[in-house]
Every structure is written in C-alpha cells, then in structure tokens.
Design a binder for these strands. Structure first.
Length: 371
DNA sequence: AACACGGGGAC
DNA sequence: GTCCCAGTGTT
C-alpha cells in the first residue's frame, strides 16, 4: 500500500461533476444555509454529528430561537442547554457546546476563531467539524472528512481497511484534501455531505444517479456494499472449563441444573470446574474411587461476548455418596425432554453407550448466541 | 441485535 | 498510538 492513494480524477473534473450534481440535486434550503454565520453553522454541525438532518431541524430552530448568538448561549445555565437537547442524544455534545461558548466569550472576544486549528481546540470540535465551520460560514478553503465523505471516498477509490484506523484515515484525508477546491467552499462541502447522505448511502447506494459512477472503483467491481469495511470485531476473550462426563454402569451421565439466572440459566449441563485439580477434588469428595479416563480433546463454544474452551473429562463412577439436589442421571440413548446447554447436547449426542473412548470425529467449534 | 456515527478521554 | 464510550437511528 503506497502512502498516498491515487485519485480517480483531477481536482477540477471532480469539483465540476460534484457541483453540477449539487446545483440540481443537492440540498439548498436547510435552516443553517440561511444566514450562514459561524455560530449557526457551528451549532448545526454539532447537532449533525451522529444525527440525521431531518431529526436536527426542529432542534436547531428551537435552539436558535432561545440562543440566537454565542453570548446568549454562554450566559445560559447548562441545564437549559441540555433541556433543549433532550431527545437529540449524545448529551456530551450539548455540554461541550455550552463550555465552548464560554471559552469563545472569555478568550476569543465572543467571536468564533477563524482558523481551523483554533476551532479544533474548542471542546466538541474536531478536525472535520472545524473544517466544515470554516468552509461553510467563511467560504475559506478547509477540508472535511465526516462519515458521509469517508464512505464516498472509500468507495470511489476502493480503499481497503476500516476508516477508523489511523492509517486508512490518513489516506482519506489526503484524498479529501486533493479534491477540495479553492472556490465555492460552502457548496462543495455541503455537496460532499449530500452525496454521501442521499446517493452514496451505506445500505443501498444509487449508483445509477451518481456523477462518479463511471470512475468509481467499487462500482466497477460491483462491490459498493463492501466499502467502507466494518470495524474489525475484537478477539473474544477465552475462558476454559472442565466438564465432568461421569457415567454409571448403565452408561447414564450425571447432569446438574444451572442456576436459574446467568449463563445457561435453568438449563441442564455437566458438572463444570475451572481446572483439573478442582474436578479431581470434587470426584474424591462425592464419588470416591471413580476411574478418571484421559481427557478428550478440548473444543470451543462461542458466545457473543467470550469463547469457552471446554475440556471433556470422562470418568466411570464407582459409587456416588449423594447425588444431591439439582442433579440427575441421564441416558443419552433415550434422551429425556430436558433443556440442555448447546455444547452439552452436542457432546451427549456423540456418545457411544458403555464407553469412555473419545468419539471418532474431531470436534470443531460451535457458534451460538448466549442467552 | 448489530452496527454506524465524531469527538474525547483513559491508558 | 489503541481502546472504549455515548444514545439514537438504520439495517
């Protein structure tokens, strides 16, 4: 992977296609597109983080009616700001907005800073939001890279990797920088966001209407849906357990019922132990003289939030002192109508009667949801 | 039921 | 740098 990706078009051609599309199909009547002051654009951009335009509009109108400028916002109580935020979600955005308003009054004479770096130093404003404020309210050249732009650019260039990864993000910023014009900055940034929001959507992109369909690398491969790649699932933590497969002379297996709440709540399972010594201690205490056979090969059961490595420990009982509450003997050849934990069910189904031998086929991992 | 989303903060 | 989070909407 080279350090700078190859653009699919020169900047001028990209801008012309995008702006021509925007002039006829873009959004031109959003509340923050009227009276585009830095303050109004700032508030709209914060509200638009993680939130769709149609949801934001009524909140924006109410907010502007109550806090028409930075001074009004800075002078308000946080509670009132959050009250107007109720229902928008991500309330840290509202708290940061309020905090930043006070910083702007205290340290910037009540005016939003003009420089991207100074804006991005304010709470709640990052690099992309700062760029959007500068481009939209001052018409000065600034680069944005929000989720919509990331999606369009990864598709257009078939950029591999999850855009949240710093290495991928760097490449996307380089592309965004490459295409950004020196004129019509407000329209251009709005157009980029509109393209992603209305055409180059996550689930069902409308490539038939896209001005870049003929140069889009993902479209050429018919793989629009594969971009951008999703965040990699982090490796699940693994826990280990020993499962006692204790059988009597008739081939029946000792089961015990799980506690009614928690993992496998109320289901029947094999007696479980954290390690071999714990299992052997239990056998000595409750079934002395039992013949413990060699462990079978461990297999893995996958839950939604961890992997359980199960080591089956077959044993033949000599005598059982007390079966205790919540335990029973179970005949695998004549299954009762019992709720069995999934891997236990699988294990019992593979048992041959009257043997402690491991089943012939190798055991592979099972995939299943946790309760 | 999982994922996407922009920025901040812990480590 | 990496990981995790917050709340709602979408898939």
């Amino acid at each position: 992977m080279s350090d700078t990706p190859t653009p699919v078009l020169p900047p001028e051609a990209f801008q012309r296609r995008l702006l021509d599309w925007f002039d006829t199909h873009g959004r031109h009547d959003l509340p923050w597109q009227r009276d585009r002051t830095p303050y109004r654009v700032w508030v709209s951009e914060i509200m638009l983080q993680q939130t769709q335009v149609t949801t934001v509009i009524p909140y924006f109108e109410r907010f502007m009616a109550r806090f028409p400028d930075v001074a009004a916002l800075a002078g308000a109580e946080q509670d009132e700001v959050l009250h107007l935020w109720t229902g928008l979600g991500y309330y840290a955005r509202g708290r940061n907005l309020h905090k930043a308003a006070r910083v702007i009054v205290d340290e910037h004479g009540g005016e939003l800073p003009e420089a991207v770096e100074a804006l991005a130093a304010l709470p709640g404003i990052g690099r992309s939001t700062a760029g959007a404020i500068v481009a939209q309210s001052r018409g000065r050249r600034a680069v944005i890279l929000d989720g919509n732009v990331k999606r369009s650019l990864t598709r257009l260039h078939a950029e591999p990797g999850w855009p949240g990864r710093p290495a991928v993000e760097r490449r996307l910023w380089a592309l965004a920088e490459h295409y950004t014009p020196h004129e019509r900055l407000a329209d251009y940034t709005q157009a980029m966001m509109d393209l992603g929001a209305t055409l180059c959507r996550r689930g069902t992109p409308e490539c038939g209407r896209c001005p870049f369909a003929d140069v889009c690398l993902a479209h050429a491969r018919g793989e629009e849906r594969r971009f951008p790649e999703s965040k990699p699932r982090k490796a699940l933590p693994t826990r280990a357990t020993q499962m006692l497969l204790l059988r009597d002379a008739e081939g029946r297996v000792l089961l015990e019922q799980r506690p009614s709440s928690g993992l496998w709540g109320g289901l029947w399972s094999l007696p479980q132990f954290d390690d071999a010594p714990a299992l052997e201690a239990w056998l000595d205490a409750h079934a002395p003289g039992s013949e413990l056979a060699p462990a079978w090969a461990p297999f893995t059961h996958v839950f939604s939030h961890f992997r359980l490595e199960i080591t089956p420990r077959p044993a033949r009982i000599a005598r059982l002192d007390s079966i205790g509450e919540s335990r029973r003997w179970y005949d695998p050849a004549r299954p009762d109508a019992l709720g069995l934990a999934a891997p236990v069910k699988r294990l019992l189904a593979s048992l041959a009667p009257f043997t402690l031998e491991a089943p012939p086929s190798p055991r592979e991992s099972v995939s299943e949801e946790s309760p």
